[in-house]
Write a protein that binds this DNA or RNA. Structure first.
Lengths: 184, 184
DNA sequence: AAGCCCATGTAAGCAGTTACATGATTGA
DNA sequence: TCAATCATGTAACTGCTTACATGGGCTT
């Protein structure tokens, strides 16, 4: 049974920006929506084949072992139907929080290390978002631009909140660590 | 190949709070860490069987068709080893952002509706967190309490940030909608 | 007697990751 | 010539969800 794949819509969506090969789709995904979406080749290539079988995409041209796909009108219709449909909640899983929740069994030093690590990763991501915010002016003309900024702003707002949470959590963990040292 | 299951650690972790049946594990998960973790019966029961086969958990007692499991010393060791190990990034997928990113193909009214819906859901969650914050005093004595508060604070901080992002995004979408109406 | 929650478990089946296989092209 | 990047694809395997099957006990 299981849920239906969202990969097909991600691929259709990327093709709606412009004709592209599987390799370029993967690249665009990881470079521009990588902070909230991921796709692997093992999903992209079979999906492209299926989409073209269903008439939702076509091989626009082949150049030197490279197949450039384009979305069809039917494909755009499919994309639209999905995007307008009801938004169902997917189960979320945050492994860092799971570890913290059962943190009593873990040395506090290690917990602190884990949170610090996650914080650093997020700070790096924030730097990336801020660079992306100063996008070249050509991109600002793109019809998708206003939508891209909303997802970028998501990264900024949530990322900053995450760093704040990390700082608060680190304070608490260090306090717990000191309390323990004081006892022992 | 694929990644190793984190379900086993979630189950071991819950059992580290106290002996419990599969049904109770499911209930505790959905009631106390449901905002960042989910488990289904289809995962829990087979996992419990495997854990007891591996000696990481045991059936402490059976009462009227109910099997109460308890974590063993070996199980606690396994939990600790996992929690101290390196934190690998799992691919995240946010379907709302995906829809927004390709939002050009969707009526703005509908996009606004989607964000409003997500906002309401989050506001409800925030209410729940705030109620949980005023926990009964018995819980405050629990040795796990300081750790539980960190995950609860995560829900609060990130939830509030999310609502802020929703409000900003709604403003932008409404501006786009007005601009469109002005043109047409 | 109906409905709800407690309670355990299995089967089907898709989604998605990782690793592997293979080769062309480009540039230092 | 060596390495990196471009490029497509398949095979194996796991995780996880959903739906189904089954039944006890409590309350109204």
């Amino acid at each position: 049974v299981a849920r239906s794949s969202t990969t097909r819509y991600a691929v259709l969506g990327v093709l709606s920006i412009g004709p592209m090969s599987g390799y370029e789709i993967r690249k665009l995904v990881s470079e521009s929506i990588g902070h909230f979406w991921g796709e692997s080749y093992g999903q992209i290539y079979p999906t492209l084949r299926r989409l073209s079988e269903e008439g939702l995409a076509v091989v626009e041209r082949e150049e030197g072992g490279k197949k450039v796909y384009a979305v069809t009108e039917a494909g755009l219709g499919e994309l639209r139907a999905w995007a307008e449909g009801p938004l169902e909640e997917r189960p979320l899983r945050n492994e860092l929080l799971l570890r913290l929740f059962f943190g009593r069994h873990v040395p506090k030093r290690r917990l602190i290390g884990l949170v610090e690590e996650a914080r650093e990763r997020q700070v790096r991501a924030l730097r990336w978002y801020r660079e992306a915010e100063d996008a070249p002016s050509e991109d600002r003309e793109h019809p998708d631009f206003p939508y891209w900024t909303t997802t970028l702003r998501f990264g900024l707002v949530m990322g900053e909140a995450f760093v704040r949470w990390c700082d608060e959590t680190l304070q608490e963990l260090r306090a717990l660590e000191r309390a323990e040292a004081g006892e022992g």
